[in-house]
Design a protein around this nucleic acid. Sequence first.
DNA 1: CGACACATAATATCAGACAATCAGAACGCC
DNA 2: GGCGTTCTGATTGTCTGATATTATGTGTCG
Lengths: 260, 260
Amino acid sequence: MAARRAARADSAPDATAEDAAADDLIRPLSRATLPQEIVKALTDLIMKGVWKPGDLIPSEKELAQRFQVGRSTIREAVKSLAVLGVLEARAGEGSFVRAPSTELLSGAFRWGVLLSERNLDDFVDVRVLIEIECVRRAAERRTPELLEQLDASMAEMAARQTDHDAFRECDTRFHMAIATAARNPIFETIGFTIQSIVRIWYPKTYFIPETKSRTLAEHRAIADAIAAGDPDAAADAMRAHLDAAGTRLRRVLSKGKRAG
Amino acid sequence: MAARRAARADSAPDATAEDAAADDLIRPLSRATLPQEIVKALTDLIMKGVWKPGDLIPSEKELAQRFQVGRSTIREAVKSLAVLGVLEARAGEGSFVRAPSTELLSGAFRWGVLLSERNLDDFVDVRVLIEIECVRRAAERRTPELLEQLDASMAEMAARQTDHDAFRECDTRFHMAIATAARNPIFETIGFTIQSIVRIWYPKTYFIPETKSRTLAEHRAIADAIAAGDPDAAADAMRAHLDAAGTRLRRVLSKGKRAG
DNA sequence: CGACACATAATATCAGACAATCAGAACGCC
DNA sequence: GGCGTTCTGATTGTCTGATATTATGTGTCG
């Protein structure tokens, strides 16, 4: 009969020696389903730099032949990565590796539990570390363009304090400008990712009366330190801002929980 | 008779057939693909609390009939959500809503790093920031298990210095153990991602004779500082290690470039 | 030289089939 | 009755083939 694909038949669940490579330590729990393995294989190809953003990956038919699986299996894997925002499948053209963007997980961002109170502290810790580093680098590498962007953001912020959406946009722009000014694409991407999450949650704090005026003042302190080219002062100002914002968010969340 | 959970029918697409048809005629498949729509519909059902964590969702066949699409379409949607960690499909049982986890949140950062432009210097900067923070947190939160893992890694490293692959595995394990010990899933994920990329590049430095002995000594200094519960010393040791490793790598790369 | 029809290739979607797996019912033994 | 075994039905896993839709290139014809 048709030779079956070499199955990964681990006959008995006997305790295996601990010679397992670190590779497999990543997922010891779930038995691998075929599409899951394909996802991992495709991920590895991206990780190793074989496929870079913008690249066209082989067609589904070719991938199916190469992995020795059916087309539907490949499709499920590719589709999963497409939903994640990692790949983009275009009918008639092929599938491409997408550039990093805030669209990552866009469909799933609406899932409320993405940031629950349990992850809030974890997230804030990451935010503090990354944004402080970004602002430090931005202060060292400051340009007139950056200062202009920051000023513009703050000016609009001050002018439109009653418009929640506009205020949020200005807030986002302020932090993203700093992330970009760090002049490191990885910090920039991480910074953008952070902002895409922040802009979903932090606007809840706008209902605290003093939030906006304090935010504006904190932003101004940060911008001043950047303009002065003082990384330490900028870092301090950013830390103060993020601590205050985090406290405000926690206050709103705990209050909402108590009330609801 | 195991009555399957009855899903509300109001999400079925046959309500207001005229409007839907008109809309579809005006914008046939505008941007969204069918599985994407299913994904959105399913996440909405979860978000609205119709399906709660642990619940069994309708079978693929029933969903296909209800949404009036083929089963493969449903499968691609469910599989995507399974990859995202939102659903869990168990053969023979059905698909279940998973308890919220940090997978989505961590995944966003993971892909951000993976898809960012990969310049060595930029990458090393990120590595230094993240791993120093991880080791600092690990020193504050150290456990006997961590110290054991680090010792085991270093012991094997010392014993198998001639085996490049084994040495690399130990190196990876050492850094990943520290990332895990930071006790923050996002830091852990970013740390793992960094290691996944690092392990592609750094083995090139193993051809410098003194690399392995120095790496081992640097690891030992880090482990000692962690064992002593001294975050600052651990951070210093880690910085020294990463700086040295970076220098070694740059040396190999420039030499290789000049030679080849 | 340009516009239109056609060929080609890729994804999008559907349908059906069979295998693998699991929970629970049915059964049989003690 | 209690308990282990077998059977069965439901569900996901996977493969194959077919049709539809879409984008790209190409060649013909005016």
